[in-house]
Design a protein around this nucleic acid. Structure first.
Length: 553
RNA sequence: UGGGGCGUCGCCAAGUGGUUAAGGCACCGGGUUUUGAUCCCGGCAUCGGAGGUUCGAAUCCUCCCGCCCCAGCCA
């Protein structure tokens, strides 16, 4: 779908109307990750939405770290997130923003609220506070500290800030309505004591603002016009608006929520991904089986594919689960159009062409891509001995041509970009397994149609035995064997697929790929799409995704 | 259960009172093909349910059913 055909989503409709009425002059959005984990495919949608809208309306999008909880955050994540956003192809407006840059301002707004008699220092402990909060059906009760004089709260807040109060002993709470049907409005905590160094502000603070007290104000400071987040924050919107209404903010941002991306056969929750990493169910955040941006990148998924996929998703208020096949479609689509072709034999078996001179070699030329001349040509050395895949050979002569379009003893097949050959006999070891196939070429068939009377069953790939490179290939399957690993009884860990990684050693690849670079994409013809693994020094290829395979055996 | 949100083909999703109810994915047929790929052609829903308003409803009203989110000093 092109942009012009794409329907206007509900956020764009709101923006259009804001622009028309003049309530908004310049569209500013933001992508606000908390640096407590790596970005995943779900974030990619949010990134595409936020940066995409800013781009569409000629505005800007901020990259802002919502670093209000030093307990869970780390600089490693900050750096990984920056790299991922950049790799996805987006550029934020101006400098990178941090919630922690606004801590002073936030603190003075907290004092402002106290002075307005709209916040107070509460000494209820966590347990009591829960008790006082009430339940979904019963309203809460006022804290006994609710009517504390502003001057006292101010002094206490200062002591909290200075580290003179124990963690958990006090909080600063907004004074709203303990009887509100929206639990978020029942005097929410806006500052809590955490005597903990922050990765950016060091030990300056002993108290940190809560998400609710920070987010809208950050938006206001940055002039964000449309603060777009996911559905689960909808219940926080009244609180967001309450701060915007009661604080002397430089602008009045608004929050809008859309449905986050869910994909089947995987998990998109930083908490769970972190667990997979920490409990070593995977190699790390960038394990190619992970739905993280870094994992997908290492797997060989292109940024373009991720963007196209995200753009194909609707921005709406429904929260569905997208079929992994839909993502895979965009991965294949991009790779099919852009990946260079190459041949790699995954399970090699030696094939000797008995009628081809021992000392003779030829070099054939094959296109880098069947439909793209700009990808040039590649050279394929050929000789008396080549490797083909064990799966491309059978001794069963009863196999129909339709059912088995590969090499069968006594029959013909086309070697891709080379000769038509025939299989004549097999050589076995003492165990009886095939160690070598002996065959023969049909002369003058390179680049030529099959001669009269010879009908190759199909086309198979191959590689020169003398002039190819050894490599290892990693084939991945879905990390979880259940479509919804999250749901149901038990842990999502119970549904980890034990066979999600298959390691194939001793593969043979075209010599030209011996120096392949991680991030370059290849289609190993008749197999799938691959990229060199960035974490190995040896020649290791990760299978990004297999080719579509429509034939039914 | 109180509040908020959502229910259109297996999945995603257009649709905002009058359309043969878009499109994509998946799937099923067929064609092309030196990749069983790509590509091409064709097939594939009466809109959660029941009432009602209307000449006319997926679109409006009523009731019902189902799913998601909120009771962190997480975000």
């Amino acid at each position: 779908m092109t942009d012009s055909e794409k329907p206007t989503n509900f956020i764009q409709q709101i923006i259009n109307s804001d622009l028309e009425t003049g309530t908004v002059k310049q569209v500013i959005t933001r992508f606000p990750p908390e640096p407590n984990g790596y970005l995943h495919i779900g974030h990619a949608k949010s990134i595409c939405v936020n940066f995409g809208i800013a781009q569409q309306y000629g505005g800007g999008c901020n990259l802002r770290f919502d670093d209000t909880n030093p307990e869970k955050e780390d600089e490693e994540y900050v750096n990984a997130i920056i790299e991922d956003v950049r790799w996805l192809g987006f550029q934020w407006q101006g400098d990178i923003c941090y919630a922690s840059n606004y801590f002073d301002q936030l603190y003075s707004w907290a004092q402002y609220l106290v002075n307005q008699n709209l916040a107070y220092v509460c000494e209820l402990n966590a347990e009591d506070m829960r008790e006082y909060r009430g339940t979904l059906t019963e309203s809460g009760k006022n804290s006994p500290f609710r009517e504390r004089p502003a001057a006292d709260s101010l002094a206490l807040l200062e002591q909290m800030k200075n580290g003179e109060i124990d963690e958990g002993a006090m909080t600063l709470r907004a004074k709203i309505d303990m009887a509100s049907p929206n639990i978020n409005m029942r005097d929410p905590v806006i500052y809590r004591i955490k005597k903990m160094a922050h990765q950016r502000t060091g030990d300056k603070w002993n108290i940190y603002p809560s998400y609710d007290f920070a987010h809208g104000q950050e938006d206001a400071i940055e002039g964000v016009s449309h603060s777009i987040c996911t559905l689960e924050f909808a219940a926080n919107r009244p609180l967001y608006d309450w701060f915007v209404a009661n604080l002397p903010l430089p602008s009045t941002p608004h929050q809008y929520e859309f449905g986050r991306l869910n994909l089947n056969y995987t998990v998109t929750s930083k908490r769970k991904l972190k667990q997979l990493v920490e409990e070593q169910h995977v190699e790390g955040w960038d394990d190619p089986r992970m739905p993280t941006i870094s994992g997908l990148r290492r797997r060989g998924v292109s940024a373009t594919a991720i963007r196209e996929f995200c753009d194909s998703l609707a921005v709406a208020k429904t929260d569905g689960v997208v079929d992994m096949a839909q993502f895979e479609h965009f991965i294949r689509d991009d790779l099919n159009n852009n990946a260079r072709r190459a041949m790699c034999v995954l399970q090699p078996v030696l094939l000797t062409l008995s009628n081809y001179d021992k000392d003779k070699t030829e070099v054939f030329s094959a296109p880098g891509h069947p439909g793209r001349d700009d990808l040039g040509e590649r050279s394929l050395p050929f000789g008396r001995q080549i490797y083909i895949d064990r799966n491309d050979f059978s001794e069963d002569t009863t196999l129909s041509r339709k059912k088995f379009k590969r090499l069968v003893i006594g029959d013909y097949v086309r070697l891709r970009s080379a000769y038509i050959i025939r299989a004549d006999e097999v050589i076995r070891d003492s165990q009886g397994s095939i160690t070598e196939i002996v065959g023969s070429i049909v002369p003058d068939t390179v680049g030529q149609d099959a001669p009269e009377g010879i009908r190759p069953r199909g086309v198979i790939h191959w590689v020169s035995a003398a002039d190819s490179a050894d490599c290892t290939v990693k084939i991945y399957d879905r990390l979880f064997s259940q479509a919804a690993p999250d749901s149901g009884e038990g842990s999502f860990l119970d549904h980890i697929n034990p066979d999600s990684l298959k390691l194939l050693g001793g593969c043979k690849v075209e010599k030209g790929l011996a120096n392949a670079v991680a991030g370059d994409h290849y289609q190993f013809e008749r197999e799938g799409y691959f990229t060199r693994d960035s974490q190995s020094t040896d020649l290791v290829f990760n299978c990004t995704i297999g080719l579509r395979d429509n034939w039914k055996a």
